[in-house]
């Protein structure tokens, strides 16, 4: 076992009746890093977070967070972690300020400390004006910010974020990402679950891809992308009927069969093939007209497709975990 791992899970197993939500999951996050747990709905992400935050005992395996066992040292561990969930867990009949003060008191801060901490967090999360309104009147983005603020009341060294931006509009998502990045810059260790490849790509140092309760790949974003091969060439044809001609013209550059979808064509490129310049020359020589052409690095979408055999969006939900 590595000595500086703040989150370390070994062989975690958990079933709900016939549903095997986790089937031997290993997760490691060194101090100050962000571990992204990426997977479709029902993959077991939330179950893993529940076990690591002491809400649920594992059926098998073991886990430590900040050096404390999630089962044996549960009560002590709870003072070291913050949890923000996909359901913005705030009391909608309390104001933003009252919510944060209540959480402070329940972390056993004094009334005065709870008040000053609530004030700081409202400022930090741009909720000063809304602080006196009940959370029921907040927009989705504001509730998530309040939820995240509540998780940060104790400045916990370890932060668990269970799909923090699911259902948010792009602007709210961006501002939440920025907040999370600020925390990481301050040295907080973060475990983040997400179904958004873009989110894992932006925030996570290392990514564990989880599917059907098992980690099917683990590594940095770049390492995962490398598993899918090198760069890809995407192009849009002037005329759909020329797809075959284009495929033939690009064959010497390609590393595998292209994916054709109407006028769009995407093909993996062989290393050192000359990239877009070579491609344009060959297509020109073959008399194939293109309206758009670009070389791109593979995305995590491509990685997910390769690893699981299906796109992330269409992933099955047969391992659905109870709410």
């Amino acid at each position: 076992m590595s000595t500086d791992a703040v989150i370390e899970a070994r062989g975690l197993r958990r079933s709900f009746g016939d549903v095997h939500a986790l089937q031997g999951v290993d997760l490691v996050a060194p101090a100050g890093s962000v571990l992204g747990v990426l997977g479709p709905n029902g993959a077991g992400k939330t179950t893993a977070v529940r076990i690591l935050t002491t809400l649920l005992p594992p059926d098998g395996g073991s886990a430590t967070v900040a050096g404390l066992d999630v089962v044996k040292d549960a009560q002590e561990l709870r003072s070291k972690i913050g949890l923000a969930g996909q359901y913005a867990a705030v009391d909608e009949y309390l104001t933003g300020k009252e919510n944060l003060e209540m959480v402070g008191r329940l972390y056993h801060l004094s009334p005065a400390e709870s008040r000053s901490r609530a004030k700081e967090l409202l400022e930090e999360f741009d909720l000063v004006d809304a602080g006196g309104r009940t959370a029921g009147t907040y927009s989705g983005g504001m509730r998530r910010r309040l939820d995240l603020a509540a998780a940060l009341v104790m400045r916990p060294p370890v932060l668990f974020l269970d799909e923090p931006t699911t259902g948010l509009d792009p602007r709210s998502r961006n501002s939440l990402w920025q907040t999370i990045e600020d925390r990481v810059a301050d040295g907080t260790t973060v475990l983040l679950t997400t179904q958004y490849l873009e989110e894992a790509d932006r925030l996570a140092d290392r990514i564990a891809v989880i599917d059907h309760g098992q980690v099917i790949a683990e590594g940095t974003s770049d390492e995962l992308k490398a598993k899918v091969g090198g760069e890809r060439l995407d192009l849009v044809l002037e005329d759909e009927a020329q797809a075959a001609a284009a495929t033939e013209a690009l064959a010497p550059l390609a590393d595998g069969e292209p994916a054709v979808d109407g006028a769009s064509l995407s093909t993996p490129l062989r290393q050192g093939s000359g990239g877009v310049v070579a491609a344009v020359r060959r297509l020109d020589d073959a008399g194939v007209g293109v309206t758009d052409i670009a070389v791109r690095r593979p995305t995590l979408d491509d990685a997910f497709l390769t690893l699981t055999g299906r796109p992330a969006e269409e992933a099955s939900t047969d391992g659905e975990e109870p709410a």
């Binding site: 529940r50 935050t53 002491t54 809400l55 009560q75 002590e76 709870r78 003072s79 972690i81 949890l83 969930g85 359901y87 913005a88 867990a89 705030v90 009391d91 959480v103 329940l106 972390y107 056993h108 509540a150």
Partner: peptide, 10 residues
């Protein structure tokens, strides 16, 4: 999810 939050607190 409020009960979940309370249960995650010390």
């Amino acid at each position: 999810g409020l009960i979940g939050r309370f249960r995650s607190l010390p």
